[in-house]
Simulated scan of single mutants.
Amino acid sequence: MEAQGLCDLHTHTTASDGMLSPAENVRLARQKGLAAVAITDHDTVAGIPEALEAARQYGITVVPGIEISTRMKGKDIHVLGYYMDYRESVFLERLEGLRRTRDERNGLIIARLNELGIPITIEEVENRLGRPLEPDETLGRPHIADVLVAKGFAADFRDAFDKYLAEGAAAYVSVPRLSPGEACQWIREAGGVPVLAHPGLYGDDELVCSIIEQDKPAGLEVSHSDHNAAAEAKYRSMAESYGLIPTGGSDFHGVRQGVVFHGELGGRTVSIRALDLLQAAAQERA
């Protein structure tokens, strides 16, 4: 099916826990006929320059983005940001702090796994990359899952999360994080537009509504690989009722241990017109 005029506003690269480089994400988006793709790595903007360079090569629009990890009422909440100034010094300093928190969380997960009788080290996780970790890149739970599968402690990537790494699993660790409201404010102060990511994953629509009402994100991720048709319809209606920009994306991470995490790039899209709305929102706050 021709996908002209569509965009995937949620993809991850090797700058965080994706399997493909930023340039490869852009190439794949062009191959699939998309008009635009957003690079939204976890707590880092390190992949954006390479993606923008590839955009010129492949003739496709790249949206600079990010996915910031936050926590509220005992749940991990993710906030997407679009069109922020990814070179702004205060924003970069704040992201560096988030990555230190992520590193702390990774160390605690490793310690918990060791307590469970699973001999794994952070050095093994880093070595599994097959290359040095670049400045401003981040390691995440998928990298730890890779080692668990490789060492035979999990059957596959999903099994590693279900047994050890997902929220509530045996080695899951929660560390203090900023609130969704703080993430929204950081994105706005960097000139960007905050969007509440994948509301269906939180299992708490009352909390979702509370975040929307208190923290005033400009958009809601209506279409997502883990939203079925009923969930998409529900969150589209929610976005309309709150006057939010409905966005969407695959949450593409690539293939690990034969398992596609969340969805294929281009598997969930929105009209290119969503970019006009996001850009207008960014200019309105400028």
Results as ranks from 00 to 15, higher is better:
residue 3 A to W: 03
residue 7 C to Q: 07
residue 8 D to C: 04
residue 10 H to Q: 15
residue 11 T to C: 12
residue 12 H to V: 11
residue 14 T to G: 01
residue 17 D to A: 09
residue 23 A to L: 04
residue 24 E to S: 05
residue 24 E to G: 01
residue 26 V to D: 06
residue 27 R to E: 15
residue 27 R to V: 02
residue 35 A to R: 14
residue 35 A to L: 09
residue 37 V to S: 09
residue 39 I to Q: 07
residue 39 I to E: 09
residue 41 D to M: 06
residue 42 H to F: 08
residue 42 H to D: 03
residue 44 T to Q: 08
residue 50 E to S: 14
residue 51 A to I: 15
residue 52 L to F: 04
residue 52 L to W: 08
residue 54 A to W: 14
residue 54 A to H: 09
residue 55 A to M: 08
residue 56 R to D: 13
residue 56 R to H: 09
residue 57 Q to I: 04
residue 58 Y to M: 07
residue 58 Y to W: 15
residue 61 T to W: 09
residue 63 V to T: 05
residue 63 V to M: 07
residue 64 P to T: 03
residue 69 S to T: 15
residue 73 K to W: 03
residue 74 G to D: 11
residue 76 D to G: 05
residue 79 V to L: 15
residue 80 L to A: 08
residue 81 G to L: 07
residue 84 M to H: 12
residue 89 S to N: 06
residue 89 S to D: 14
residue 91 F to H: 08
residue 92 L to S: 06
residue 92 L to E: 12
residue 92 L to H: 05
residue 93 E to V: 06
residue 95 L to V: 08
residue 100 R to N: 04
residue 101 T to V: 10
residue 101 T to H: 06
residue 106 N to D: 11
residue 106 N to A: 13
residue 111 A to D: 15
residue 114 N to A: 11
residue 116 L to A: 03
residue 117 G to F: 11
residue 118 I to Q: 10
residue 121 T to R: 07
residue 122 I to V: 09
residue 123 E to F: 00
residue 126 E to K: 14
residue 128 R to T: 00
residue 130 G to Q: 12
residue 133 L to Q: 14
residue 133 L to N: 10
residue 137 E to N: 14
residue 137 E to F: 13
residue 141 R to G: 00
residue 143 H to D: 13
residue 149 V to P: 07
residue 149 V to C: 07
residue 150 A to Q: 13
residue 153 F to A: 02
residue 153 F to M: 02
residue 155 A to C: 01
residue 159 D to T: 02
residue 161 F to D: 08
residue 163 K to A: 06
residue 165 L to F: 04
residue 165 L to S: 05
residue 167 E to A: 13
residue 167 E to C: 01
residue 168 G to W: 00
residue 171 A to V: 02
residue 172 Y to S: 06
residue 173 V to L: 05
residue 175 V to R: 09
residue 179 S to R: 13
residue 182 E to C: 01
residue 185 Q to M: 12
residue 187 I to A: 03
residue 188 R to E: 13
residue 190 A to D: 13
residue 195 V to S: 11
residue 196 L to G: 00
residue 201 L to G: 02
residue 202 Y to F: 07
residue 203 G to C: 08
residue 203 G to W: 00
residue 204 D to M: 01
residue 205 D to I: 08
residue 206 E to F: 05
residue 207 L to W: 03
residue 208 V to T: 12
residue 209 C to N: 09
residue 209 C to G: 12
residue 211 I to D: 11
residue 211 I to N: 08
residue 213 E to D: 04
residue 213 E to I: 01
residue 215 D to E: 15
residue 217 P to W: 15
residue 218 A to W: 11
residue 221 E to P: 04
residue 221 E to N: 07
residue 229 A to I: 04
residue 232 E to C: 06
residue 233 A to I: 11
residue 234 K to R: 15
residue 236 R to G: 13
residue 237 S to I: 02
residue 238 M to I: 15
residue 241 S to D: 11
residue 247 T to D: 03
residue 248 G to R: 10
residue 249 G to K: 10
residue 249 G to R: 10
residue 251 D to R: 02
residue 252 F to Q: 05
residue 255 V to P: 07
residue 255 V to L: 11
residue 257 Q to C: 11
residue 257 Q to K: 14
residue 257 Q to I: 01
residue 260 V to C: 05
residue 262 H to Q: 14
residue 263 G to H: 07
residue 264 E to Y: 00
residue 265 L to E: 13
residue 266 G to Y: 09
residue 268 R to G: 03
residue 269 T to Y: 13
residue 271 S to C: 05
residue 271 S to A: 10
residue 276 D to F: 03
residue 282 A to V: 09
residue 285 R to L: 10
